[in-house]
Amino acid sequence: MTKPIIEVKNLAKNFDKNVVLKDITEQVDPGQVVVVIGPSGSGKSTFLRCLNLLETPTSGQVSFDGQDLTTLDTKRVNALREEMGMVFQSFNLFPNMSVLENIKLAPMKVKGMGNDEATKLAHQLLQQVNLDDHADAFPTSLSGGQAQRVAIARALAMNPKVMLFDEPTSALDPEMVGEVLNVMQDLAAQGMTMVVVTHEMGFAKSVADRVWFMDDGYIQENSTPADFFAHPKTDRAKDFLSKILM
């Protein structure tokens, strides 16, 4: 049996009196693609952000590669964050840098990679997301789909073991959703471990190994996509699916 790469135990998170995550215990194995779905406000994004400590859990443990992140000092947390790439709903590209510089920043400043090597790596990644001709463009001149692909390339530049996606297509125009999902699908095919919060049920069905259905601060169901979409167990999941699948 393989050792899980991410292990969550009794994770809870509240913002003041607002309890968002109540008690979550789950794990992700290397190479797995987990899709987290659920109604808005169910805590999906907060959960994802707890995995790389962008949000500090109120209680519980989040382990990455066998190390409990909640007990580590800032330096160690920074080091482990390198290994977890994250892609945001609103891209969050750095507007003061060109596409190439966006990708080169972390390898150079965190890993101490030389300029030539970083440039080479950046071009490679841009080719992978089909955007090498935009290397010198600035983020404001890109379309949403292009920006999100650059953001993925930027996260990949740190050669992460896991990629976290926080609703990567929710801010995109419909015709651009496909190009981003294709890149993600390729990544999954290459064996990347991924945790994806999304509303794209098609992606969940065709790419995910596991579907986690989240509601009311708990993971209500954890099953294969086939099982989940054909035979949802809980009433909440049935209700959710009936709303989105029409």
Partner: peptide, 27 residues
């Protein structure tokens, strides 16, 4: 400067000092 800029930089493993210097302060 948008909070997302800091989050993106931190998620890449940048320290808070580097985040400030390369991402937040220039903007």
């Amino acid at each position: 400067v948008d909070e997302g800029q800091t989050e993106a930089a931190r998620s890449l493993g940048l320290t808070s000092a580097s985040t400030l210097r390369y991402v937040v302060l220039p903007q």
